[in-house]
Design a protein around this nucleic acid. Structure first.
Lengths: 200, 200
DNA sequence: CAAATGACAAAAATCAATATTTGTCATTTG
DNA sequence: CAAATGACAAATATTGATTTTTGTCATTTG
């Protein structure tokens, strides 16, 4: 697209646009090459395979999910409020991406199955943001936790139904928000001061 | 199989066996008819379609999941112990079914997508068993909850990663048990006495 | 000589002709 | 006459021949 200079970045730009337009299953590296007006062999000088290209696109795409969340995580507001905001935002972004653009949803599904490493890194990033908020909450004496990373993992896992794309079909149910509220209340009363006595 | 008498039950028996043997995608109603040594038209006198037959098989199959759980739910032990046992059992059964028999796993996936009503009824049954245990827990002054059904739904939803078949691929991860333990501890401290102050 | 090309083999997807399966129903059977 | 049959049309799946796509690399180009 950006004339004459061919960088990995410009390839990713073109690739992402082509993925969007043709859908993830149907796009070939020849299509991407055509969009850039180069031969498809050229793409292979920059990315070792079609999978590598798709993973790179995915990574950038997931970064655009985690960046605005990082901003929320870094705020100064009370940790309980902030954690709620953070999850509302996460859920909103995921729902939007998945329901708004069905073609992209298929990509996401394919990725989740095949680009395991990229997704795992993304999840790790998200969990560490949650851990940050929880740690702040402990300092503010709102939350009680000996190990904020462990607590963060637990919170992430307990809310999986509301943000993991495999559950996307359930998100259009009318009571999905109240289901989330219920789970949220349960989690929050587990996380909040005063500490519950040790579990059995 | 059972000679000469053809009841809906005997058809289900045969159908289930054929499903097991040939896998869910490949079995035809002709196969089921052959196993019973009748014409395939006969099957249609008892079940209005192949889908209806498959749903009926599924329903019986899911009942064999919920029956042993109902037994646990009805025990007299302390509610917290019993709830833990109940979930361990649920998870064990699901893992076994899904990982033990890959063909059957495919059936389960197909069902979850297509036989929505049957699965929904099953989930409702499970949630009502949890509600029963929680209610006992409140009476025993172990748990604190104003609405046991709502709490039950929350607990079920929060543990979805560990029993919903769409997450089966994650179950072979080495840390799945400790992930469950973490979520369980979080949930339990949310559920347990003394009641946390009202949520924001 | 660094970067891009395009001819090429191997792997994967498409397509249309063929075969199987589903579901119906008029006829047969006990 | 109630229950089962099997011939049938429509829908669906299979198959294998053909095309497209992926990935490599010796050659070309600026």
């Amino acid at each position: 697209m950006t004339d004459s200079v061919l960088t990995p970045e410009s390839i990713l730009d073109a690739a992402e646009e082509v993925f969007r337009k043709y859908g993830p299953t149907k796009t070939t590296v020849v299509d991407v090459a055509r969009a850039l007006e180069v031969s498809h062999g050229t793409i292979y000088r920059h990315f070792s395979s079609k999978l590598a290209l798709r993973d790179a696109v995915t990574q950038r795409w997931l970064q655009r999910v985690s960046a605005p969340l990082a901003a929320i995580a870094a705020e100064k507001s009370p940790a309980d409020e902030r954690l709620r905001q953070w999850f509302e935002q996460l859920i909103m972004i995921k729902h939007q991406k998945v329901l708004g653009d069905p073609e992209l949803f298929a990509t996401y599904q394919a990725i989740a199955e095949q680009a395991r490493e990229v997704v795992e890194a993304h999840v790790e990033e998200l969990v560490s943001q949650i851990a940050q908020i929880i740690e702040d909450g402990v300092a503010q004496e709102i939350f009680c936790s000996t190990d904020s990373l462990t607590a963060a993992q637990a919170v992430f896992n307990a809310t999986v139904r509301f943000h993991h794309p495999v559950h996307a079909a359930e998100w259009s149910a009318p009571n999905i928000q109240s289901d989330f509220d219920q789970v949220w209340r349960l989690i929050m009363s587990g996380l909040r001061m005063p500490c519950a006595s040790s579990a059995t």
